[in-house]
């Protein structure tokens, strides 16, 4: 029972952090209908911004998260405006050239970070990173719990932003029907830039939450990118609730796979879910929950 409980709790807590990273991607995919392979690399940049703030000013990653999000918002906006927008919506033989562009951007960003920070593994541990408390034979790590709570707050705030404000409604309108939104007076280009920047900032927030419990190096993002896709497809594009439930589900499924099957196959669990959802639940959990 302790084994089961521990596995479940660990899965839920890590799933919350996955959800924040993925919610950014799901927004971008929802509005732009393209796969953004630079998302993971931008999360990594966010981690490095927090790390630099931690190293030079001793700013705890949870506080460094705010400047990191602002900086990444800017980077996201610039990338979208000056690079991705150029190929966005252009008639080409294969629309996937945009996907490839985002990937090349991601790999390029990785190399820039490597030049600045070297390839060394770096971390921002504080005594807080190792703290945990015990609950009926299960150990609950405090940084995981705090990360989870912040993550939930972000998802809730984003949900409110999207459903209760004009800006958010324009984002949703653009996602649902770009042309119709344009006719209704929404500046779709601006909204797209905003969405991309917001998604990037959220990725940075997720990275900042990972920093106290994990570590960073320029290629840290590869597994997280894969997880983002899985969650996006699992939850349904453009849905915050979908991303949240998808993130939690993936976190739990992975940890159960690692505990009861084999730690070596933990990523396969996610990938199997991914393909199954694509085949049997197109549209993702969004459809089931009814948004």
């Amino acid at each position: 029972m302790a084994l089961f409980g521990q596995t479940f709790v660990t899965g839920i807590l890590i799933g919350g952090i996955y959800a924040v990273i993925a919610v950014g991607m799901t927004l971008i995919m929802g509005v732009m209908k393209i796969i953004n392979l630079a998302h993971g690399a931008l999360m990594m940049v966010g981690m490095y911004v927090c790390l630099a703030l931690f190293k030079s000013f001793g700013l705890h990653p949870y506080l460094g998260m705010i400047p990191a999000m602002i900086i990444l918002f800017g980077i996201g906006w610039l990338l979208q405006k000056y690079s991705i927008e150029r190929v966005f919506g252009v008639e080409t033989i294969l629309p996937e050239s945009q996907v490839l562009l985002t990937l090349a951007l991601g790999l390029g960003i990785t190399e820039i970070i490597r030049l600045i920070f070297t390839s060394n593994y770096q971390c921002a541990y504080t005594p807080f990173s190792a703290r945990c408390f015990y609950l009926g034979g299960m150990s609950i790590s405090q940084p995981y719990l705090v990360g989870f709570i912040i993550a939930m707050a972000f998802v809730a705030a984003l949900h409110i932003l999207l459903t209760r404000t004009d800006l958010g409604r324009s984002v949703i309108a653009t996602a649902q029907d770009r042309d119709a939104a344009t006719y209704m007076g929404v500046d779709a280009k601006r909204i797209t830039n905003f969405t991309f920047a917001l998604g990037t900032a959220l990725a940075a927030a997720g990275g900042a939450m990972l920093l106290p419990i994990f570590y960073t190096y320029p290629d840290v993002w590869h597994p997280y990118l894969a997880k983002c896709f899985i969650i996006t497809i699992l939850g349904g594009m453009g849905s915050t609730v979908g991303a949240l439930s998808g993130g939690l589900l993936l976190g739990v499924a992975e940890t159960f796979g690692a505990t009861y099957w084999s730690p070596g196959y933990r990523d396969v669990v996610g990938l199997i879910i991914f393909v199954l959802v694509l085949l049997f639940l197109p549209g993702g959990l969004k459809k089931v929950i009814g948004r």
Binding site: A2, L3, I213, E254, T255, F256, A258, P263, G264
Partner: peptide
């Protein structure tokens, strides 16, 4: 006796199984 992915974020599932 098990391999694990060294890039994983947390090893609690594995360690829980080890403890058991």
């Amino acid at each position: 006796d098990s391999p694990y992915d060294s890039t994983a974020t947390d090893f609690k599932p594995m360690l829980t199984a080890v403890k058991a």
